[in-house]
Design a protein around this nucleic acid. Structure first.
Lengths: 231, 231
DNA sequence: GATATAATTTAGCCATGACTAAAAACTACG
DNA sequence: CGTAGTTTTTAGTCATGGCTAAATTATATC
């Protein structure tokens, strides 16, 4: 299991370590405080287990932990998290483009593969895809040295009606949700026309590839779009 | 970690379980008795650890274990071993053909990936490669229902001099050895002309792509060839 | 067939990373 | 500002799968 972590890391990290760091990273980017309960709920283990692991990560200088406080990644911890995220998103795109795995299935596959991806394989995959910037859901792929771009786009639910947009990101990894969107033709980079946004968080009427569909408001909130005219 | 094991298997298997079963399978195919020491040496753990695991595998009806006797796979155990071997060899070929990973590096990569390959991914890979029969070293790929073919071919070291042969299999996974062979142009299916086999296990003089090379006898013994004229 | 040597197994230890249950510490409200 | 309720931590358990050291069993030789 060849790893690429910042050379500062002494002990090798298990998949568990990596999963926790990735989870903390993702929760951090949501802007919320990474409380113990948020973390434990996200990773699907008990709060006691989360505390336990967080303390270990703190000993390795991957997170900053003060009892009863929100956890935070250290720079090194963030590097590790971003490397795993890079693995994950490169794998998602690779599986999608090279093996035609549908976008609603790539997440769970990548979830397991990301921990056993060598440096060499990561590079080969990135090269074979032409050093891509986003995965099949529009999530940005961190660069090899831990930089990550901000994807532009606003929620469809907050966009002006009567205009055309391009779908640039879907903020969900849920299989059923993605499968549903896919069936409507709502793939990445597809053009959608926003007919109407019903008030009081009512359904959103969109047209995709000539067909009209009504989307639940919270579904539309997950669809990040840019005006279709833009570039 | 979606698994494909014969439905008879109750508890899920860890990578360790799978590694042991694969090791036992490989040792069995070598014809030798799978003693505890042979097994422990092959997998690189202590004999005590091997005994321990073999007893667990016996409880799961994956191997037959009688103290102080050679271990043997049960039909179910063989199915599991063959499935992992299928994963391994499909992955080797996939990495080699799709990502241009050299044949001397694919083994160690596949070694980690084979345990986290889902059924769906296995199928997708097999399909994308056109349901191949052998991996980049000429090792046969077990079929989905656990059949495995016998590769024809005889050791180059035992072949008649003055004739042309085609390399159909290399019986080694050692990185350096494979890298060396690759440098000489000795890849799978390449044509070689056997000039001379020096007596008393002396070097073997071969011609590959116009160049002549002297191979150590034990190296030549690992090269399985068929007469070049054959089909 | 006794005994030396080699192989195998047993017994017991350790780290990992999950868990439950109970204790402790925060928060918020009356 | 004290107490109820929630969150977090602690303490201790368990299974896993390595390990070492010691006991046992097989084997092989005289």
């Amino acid at each position: 299991m060849t790893k690429n972590y910042a050379s500062e890391i002494s002990s090798p990290l298990s998949s568990s370590h990596e999963d926790y760091l990735k989870a903390i990273y993702i929760l951090e980017t949501r802007g919320e405080q990474v409380t113990n309960s948020a973390l434990s709920e996200y990773i699907g283990f008990t709060p006691a287990s989360a505390t336990n692991m967080v303390k270990k990560l703190a000993q390795m200088d991957l997170v900053i932990y003060r009892p009863h406080q929100a956890v935070a990644l250290t720079p090194t911890g963030r590097r590790v998290a971003l490397e795993i995220l890079r693995h994950h998103r490169l794998l998602e795109l690779f599986l999608h483009k090279t093996l035609d795995i549908p976008w609603d299935k790539v997440h769970e596959e990548a979830e397991r593969l990301e921990h056993v991806l060598s440096e060499a394989l990561e590079d080969a995959i990135a090269a074979s895809l032409g050093y891509p910037k986003v995965d099949p859901h529009g999530d940005p792929i961190p660069s090899k040295n831990g930089e990550i771009s901000h994807t532009p786009g606003l929620p469809l639910s907050q966009s002006e009606a009567g205009r055309a947009y391009r779908l640039v990101r879907v903020l969900s990894q849920e299989r059923e949700r993605l499968a549903y969107l896919g069936k409507l033709g709502l793939h990445l980079n597809v053009e959608v026309f926003l007919h109407e946004q019903a008030p009081f968080d009512g359904p959103v009427l969109v047209e995709v590839a000539g067909e009209e569909h009504a989307l639940a408001a919270d579904m539309a909130a997950l669809l990040q779009v840019v005006p279709a005219s833009a570039e």
